[in-house]
Nucleic acid binder design. Structure first.
Lengths: 339, 339
DNA sequence: AATCTGAACGCAAACGCTTGCGCAACCGGG
DNA sequence: CCCGGTTGCGCAAGCGTTTGCGTTCAGATT
C-alpha cells in the first residue's frame, strides 16, 4: 500500500536499519550508501511513519501548544509565530484549545498529550495541579504569559513597568481621576492583571493621588468586558477623566461605551490601552506595545534549544522590551468636566 | 516508567487484548469485566499511547488543519471553532501554518501529515497540484473557503450575494461613484475576491451605473492593503463617494487612510465592509456578516460524519446565511463633494 | 448424555520503525 | 604476518497497541 522503510531497503539492497540510520543522518553508514538511500527514498516518495518511529524511538517530533482561545488576537499571534519556528525545525504542532472549563478539564485529566509530544508551550497559566500534570509529562515546558510555574521556561514582559508608563502618561497630562479597567475576574493564577494593577497603584501613589477603589472596574479581557466596565465607571457620581485599560481589547470596549454615551475621546475622556493590538492603530489608540509575535518566537526557540541539549540548565526568564505609543485617545483633562 | 496497557491487564488479571477491547467499547467483554477494567485504568491513570494504537490500528484520532495564517482573525476564529468540535469528539488537531511560500512548499512536498491524520481541514485553497497531494492521503477533506477542489467537502457563503447587498445599500443611499477595495492580488486559486467583485459589478450594472475600472483598487486582504488601496482611490481626480471593501480588515485600513486625509466618515465618504470582524462593531463599520465560527464548526462536523460513516456519499456544499449589518460608516453622499 | 452454540477471553502476529550488539572486512603498525 | 582498531552493515529485540483466530466453558438443544 504505502511505501515503508523496507521498500526503500529492498530497492537499495540494504537492511532497514541502514536505511533508518542513513535517512536520519546517524553514523554507521558510508557516505556513498547514504546518497544512494536518500535517492531511493526520494524516488519512492518515502516518509517515515511518525507513529512507528515515535513508538520505537521515543521522540515524536511534535510540540504541544496549549491555548486558552485561539481566536483571540494575542494568542493567535503568539501561536502563529511559534508554529513557524517549530515547523522550520521539522516539528509538528499539536494544538489544544482549552477555552471552556470542560475542554480544560478533559485535557488535564486524560492528558491526551502524553507520549505524543517532545515539549509543551503553554499560553495559559495552569493552576498548580495542572502544572504538576504537565511536569509529569517529563518534557521541556515553556510559557509566554505572566505567572509561570516552577519547571516552566518563561518569556514575558515587564507588565508593571508598562502599566506605569501608561498611567504616568495620564498623570503627566494632568489627570487626577484615573480609572482602571481590569480583567482580574477572569482566569485565575496569572499575574498579568495583578502586575499591571500594581503599576497603576505605584504611579498614583508616586503622584500623590489618593487611590479610589471605585475607579477600578473589572470586566474580563474582552471588548465586551471593557465596555461593561467603562459603563460602570460612567455611572459613577464622579466618573474618571481618563482610564487605563489593561488590554487594548478592553480599551476598545471602553471606546464603544464612550461613544454610546456621546462622549468624545479624548476631549471628554482619555483612554490608554496595553498590548498594541493590530487594530489599535486603526482606532488611534494610545497604548503600550509589547512584541507579541517575538515572544512566541522566543519561547519556541527556548524549547528547541532545550530539546537539542537537554543537559543545558534552564535559561533565565526572558524579558522582552515594551514601549509606549502615543496616539490619539489621550489629551489633557477637559476643564469643563473636571469636578 | 509510564503505565501501559499490560499494567492495567495485570492489575485486573486479564489479557491486554481484553483491556483494549473493554476500553474502546468493543464487543467481546462482559459488562462486569468492563467496569472493572475501566476502574483499574482510571486508578492507574492509564491513557493509551496514540503512537502505538495508530500504528497498530490505522486510525490516528488526529485531524490535520492547514491554515494560511493563524494570527488573522478569520482563520483564528474558524480554527477555534473547529478545534472545539474535534476535541470534543476525541480527536487531536495537528496545525500547519502555511503562510510563507517556503513553509507551504515544504509542507506539500514532504507531506509530513501523511499517515498522521484521519482527515484534513484546509483553510487555504490548494492549487491543483497541492490538492492532488492532499487527495493522495486518501482521507476526508474539507474546506471553508471559496474555490474548493474536487474531493473536498465545502462549507461557505454566498459571496456574490453578500457583495450585492453591500453595494446595493450604497446605491440606495444615492451613491454613484462607488469604489471597490479588493485583494485579488493575494493568494491565487480562491474565488472569494472574484465572486465579491462580481456582486459589485452586478449591482452597478443593475443600477445603470457605468463601471469605472479606476475605481477598483487592490491591496491584499489586510489593514495595510486596505489603507494603500484607499489612498490610491483618494488620489483620483474624482474620488469615489463610497467604497465597498471586500473585507472588514481592508475597510478598517480604508478608514485609517480617510482619517489621515482628514475626511469624515460617513459625511464625506461612506465605507462598507464584509465579514463582520469582531472589532467592526467597535468602529461602527457597516458590513455584511458571515458566521465565521459556525463555518468552522460545520466543516468539522462534516469531516467527523465522514469518518463515522465512510460509505456515506459526500454531502452537498453547505451554504451558511449572511446578513447585512447597518452601522455608522454609511450615509447619503455629501452634495458639496459630489462631482 | 452427547452435541451444538455463543459469549468471554487469551494468544500471537502484525504495525513500521529504532537501536544495541555482533560480525565481517579492511586498515595500518609492530 | 599477526593483531587490535575502525568502519560499515545486518540481526533481532523491542516500542505499546489492535485484531483475527483459537480456546474454554456454561447453558441450551436434541
Amino acid at each position: 500500500m504505502t511505501v515503508s522503510i523496507t521498500d526503500v531497503a529492498e530497492a537499495t539492497g540494504v537492511s532497514a536499519s541502514t536505511v533508518s540510520r542513513a535517512l536520519r543522518g546517524r553514523p554507521g553508514v558510508s557516505e556513498e550508501m547514504r546518497v544512494r538511500i536518500v535517492a531511493a527514498a526520494a524516488e519512492l516518495g518515502y516518509t517515515a511513519s511518525r507513529s512507528a518511529s515515535s513508538l520505537a524511538g521515543g521522540r515524536t517530533y511534535t510540540i504541544g501548544v496549549v491555548v486558552p482561545y485561539v481566536g483571540r488576537w494575542f494568542f493567535g499571534t503568539v501561536l502563529d509565530a511559534a508554529e513557524k519556528v517549530f515547523s522550520a525545525a521539522g516539528y509538528d504542532v499539536l494544538l489544544y484549545n482549552l477555552g471552556s472549563p470542560e475542554a480544560r478539564k478533559r485535557f488535564f485529566t486524560k492528558l491526551p498529550i502524553r507520549k505524543r509530544v517532545d515539549a509543551v508551550l503553554s499560553l495559559l497559566i495552569p493552576d498548580p495541579e495542572e502544572a504538576a500534570a504537565l511536569r509529569s509529562l517529563d518534557v521541556p515546558l515553556a510559557t509566554t504569559v505572566g505567572g509561570a510555574r516552577p519547571g516552566f521556561m518563561v518569556v514575558g514582559i515587564d507588565d508593571r513597568g508598562g502599566a506605569e508608563s501608561a498611567v504616568r502618561h495620564l498623570v503627566n497630562l494632568g489627570h487626577r481621576r484615573i480609572g482602571m479597567i481590569s480583567g482580574a475576574s477572569e482566569p485565575l493564577h496569572w499575574t498579568t492583571p495583578i502586575d499591571r494593577r500594581q503599576g497603576y497603584l505605584d504611579v498614583l501613589a508616586d503622584a500623590g493621588i489618593e487611590h479610589d477603589p471605585a475607579l477600578e472596574a473589572d470586566g474580563g479581557y474582552t471588548v465586551e468586558g471593557g465596555e461593561r466596565a467603562m459603563t460602570e465607571l460612567l455611572a459613577l457620581r464622579h466618573p474618571p477623566t481618563a482610564v487605563f485599560a489593561q488590554s487594548d481589547e478592553m480599551a476598545m470596549g471602553a471606546l464603544r461605551a464612550l461613544r454610546r454615551h456621546r462622549l468624545r475621546v479624548p476631549e471628554d475622556v482619555s483612554v490608554v490601552g496595553f498590548d498594541d493590538h493590530e487594530l489599535s492603530e486603526v482606532v488611534g489608540l494610545t497604548t503600550v506595545a509589547q512584541p507579541v509575535a517575538a515572544q512566541g518566537q522566543e519561547a519556541a526557540r527556548l524549547l528547541l534549544a532545550q530539546l537539542d541539549d537537554p543537559d543545558a540548565g534552564p535559561p533565565h526568564p526572558v524579558e522582552m522590551p515594551i514601549r509606549f505609543i502615543l496616539r490619539e485617545t489621550t489629551a489633557p483633562p477637559n476643564p469643563r468636566r473636571q469636578r
